[in-house]
């Protein structure tokens, strides 16, 4: 791996983590707000599905949410492994990509279920 490629990759990892945080911040607030509102008077599957199927905006919002969370979480996990373990860079990247894949798979399933 050349110095330039390494620099390029690390800078983009940094940029993507910040941009995904930027996307996550408002979505987390909306998500928490809806949770607090929805839990009043108890939760039911039909009530939740009724809401998420009422508009195409809900699946879109949660789609964006899980992609941003996956990217942000995987990069953060990668940083922690880089700093706190002596694992080689390649294994660290594999772990991080694995985590991203897991979130994307579960996220897609969820979206399919609520859309």
């Amino acid at each position: 791996m050349t110095q330039h490629k390494e620099t390029y990759r690390e800078t983009w990892a940094f940029v993507l983590q910040r941009l995904s945080a930027l996307v996550l911040a408002p979505l987390v607030i909306v998500h928490l707000g809806v949770m607090i509102y929805a839990v009043q008077g108890g939760l039911s599957t039909s009530e939740m599905l009724g809401r998420t199927q009422s508009s195409f905006m809900w699946p879109v919002m949660y789609g964006l949410f899980f992609v941003a969370a996956g990217v942000h979480g995987a990069l953060g996990f990668r940083n922690i492994l880089q700093e706190m373990t002596t694992l080689p860079g390649r294994s660290i990247n594999t772990f991080a990509l694995g985590l991203l894949a897991l979130v994307l798979i579960f996220g897609l399933q969820t979206i399919r279920a609520i859309a």
Binding site: H4, E6, T7, E10, A13
Partner: peptide, 12 residues
């Protein structure tokens, strides 16, 4: 900038 933007540089 390029010399310090890598893994061991400012981003850490």
């Amino acid at each position: 900038l390029k010399a310090v933007a890598g893994e061991s540089g400012c981003l850490s």
